[in-house]
Nucleic acid binder design. Structure first.
Lengths: 349, 349
DNA sequence: GAGCGCCATGTAAACGGTTTCATAGTTTCA
DNA sequence: TGAAACTATGAAACCGTTTACATGGCGCTC
């Protein structure tokens, strides 16, 4: 493995000059630079990343921490992160499946000295203290955090208002018995969607009832399982709002197996608008969330934090969502404009 | 940021001792070790990764290169990679969306000195030369490579035999006019599936006809679009094999919109068995591919390569696939055992 | 009780870069 | 024409570790 010294020797210059050439810094005679490039290419040389970060104390790498969830939505988020990071010449050190606070701390420890900042989609069990602790040594941006942390920018999904809009829409279609398949307890977005569902009902003058809420875990199977429980309810719900599309899809499958048709017998609405939602039979009414943009915004906030000298600028963003009416809710799908909801706030403090 | 020197000073020992404590190496007096731990924890010290890799020339990090594809299948592969890597105390440096050979070389250059090995799901345009070049400096494991490379272990999907089994199954159900929605040209698995489709037809004494093959790109939309083309064919195909599930789902959606029912009017079969496949209406007959295992095997091969002193051991694996009969093909779904196909070869040379 | 070996620890040299500062050579300008 | 300013380059310190080697103390053995 050729080092900077080999290149220097081959090019007949000092290592300082080679370094300058590779960093495009200050003035190096053009002819000299060409010799250096030639030597480097002959030796297949490229600066060693570890050595470089050791002296510069910058790694051009972003750490990404993910919870144990996966699937279409999360892979879109990662794609957004990766692409913007790549465009900005950053690499991406990913670590998934963190269930506990201890897990997270271990992972960030292992990343020490290898990353310039941490984008964190934390597990539900994370605490303010642990994030604060990490923040002391490293810029941190949070995605859908359960709380605000001093010095951390964050970007969240307008889950509450999206869910409220879903209920309002269903009520507008005449539904009164609206059930919900909730997401995993503890998950912020799951809870916000549940809260929005309850608020939506209350605003329509309908008393939210706990027996109409079935617990799920964001996966298809739990949506499928939820159907059995809901079909037992009397009066039977005429509409079901699932906290994400995967569960909605599982639910629709179970309803079909039970001989019920969507939306005639039961209306179904999901959340996220994953790629397949529009290809379901019937096409799934859902709340569109731009997962790709979510990932991108997180990286953008991180870059802002990194370029901010004293780390004083903290931005708390919410990405907007939009009700996407298709057929599964029984409404005539609006082919053009979708009902808009949610806010794209961008506060600085 | 506390360094090893700060800890040494606080604990009243030399930096060598601190290093030894953190590496569990050789004998350190238990009492001394405790003092070091105490000092480290008081200063919130953890060894700097960059410095460590500089001296040891090991980074405990695996590079992962992905093409521009995404979705359920790929995120499962990544999950498999990440989880096994994590369990084996490796970190994962991911870089996605590589379209060209140049892209790949740039990415691997940027990783230089930061990774111990590279797991590569290369773009279709990759060449033997470029992989060979990378291999000269770094262990490389390939996923679904278009060719074998000296010194590189690889793991592939039994796409050919899976596709052949699909056709055999459809022929067994009485279909003769079997169309295919192919994957992107150049993609190895897409091409193997196409080849398996043709072979399957030939083995059944049916002449493969090019007008029954529609080009897709592995995404739902292309499956949707393919329907229009296929429904024009006379005689109309009675069965369609899509090269992956996403396209099959898009296809089914379009067929439904055209007033055709699956499987009565047209039988549909996919490939991959992504999570939602079983929740489709009708449930999608497909070829099961264990994407998670695929990722895991790649990492396992990498670990083997890394622990192999002279890098002589090269393993070429194929992960087996299995036809998963559900309703979309019109057969009575086998609830228990699935028809088995494909080989799990494990040759060493 | 001198010699030997072992154990715990310290000293210092890498590892491969970046960067500050010094220096020699070349302009520029009065 | 000589001082000043600038340009291109080199020498050397430093980044935070690991590790080969040196060292000193102690318990054994003969």
């Amino acid at each position: 493995m050729a080092t900077i010294r080999d290149v220097a020797k081959t090019a007949g210059v000092s290592i300082a000059t080679v370094s300058r050439v590779f960093n495009g810094s200050s003035a190096v005679n053009e002819e000299t630079a060409l010799q250096v490039w030639a030597a480097a290419s002959a030796l297949d040389y490229w600066p060693n990343g570890a050595a470089r970060s050791l002296t510069t104390s910058r790694s051009s790498t972003l750490g990404v921490l993910l919870p144990d969830l996966f699937g279409d939505f999360f892979s879109e988020v990662i794609r957004g992160i990766d692409q913007l990071a790549k465009r900005e010449k950053y690499q991406t050190l990913i670590s998934g499946s963190h269930a506990s606070v201890e897990d997270v701390l271990t992972a960030t420890r292992a990343m020490r000295g290898r990353i310039d900042g941490l984008v964190m989609m934390a597990p539900d069990s994370i605490t303010v203290e642990s994030v604060t602790k990490i923040r002391r040594r490293l810029p941190v941006v949070l995605i859908s955090p359960p709380f605000a942390v001093d010095g951390c920018s964050s970007v969240s999904i307008a889950s509450f208002s999206g869910a409220r809009a879903v209920v309002a829409h269903l009520v507008g279609l005449g539904h009164r018995e609206i059930a919900m398949v909730a997401g995993p307890a503890g998950n912020v977005d799951a809870e916000e969607r549940l809260r929005g569902y309850r608020r939506g009902l209350a605003e329509a003058g309908i008393q939210p009832r706990d027996e109409l809420v079935v617990q799920g875990d964001f996966r298809e199977s739990s949506g499928y399982a939820a159907a059995a429980a809901l079909l037992d309810r009397r009066p039977r719900p005429t509409a079901v709002f699932a906290a994400n599309d995967c569960m909605a899809i599982g639910l629709m499958s179970a309803l079909g197996n039970a001989g019920l048709s969507v939306p005639q017998d039961v209306a179904v609405v999901g959340f996220d608008n994953i790629a397949i939602a529009q290809y379901m039979r019937p096409p799934l009414t859902t709340v569109h969330v731009d997962a790709y943009a979510l990932g991108q915004k997180a990286v953008r906030l991180m870059l802002d934090t990194l370029s901010d000298p004293d780390g004083a600028k903290v931005t708390v963003q919410t990405i907007d969502v939009a009700l996407k009416v298709r057929s599964s809710c029984g409404a005539r799908p609006s082919t053009t404009a979708d009902a808009y909801t949610g806010a794209d706030t961008d506060q600085q403090r």
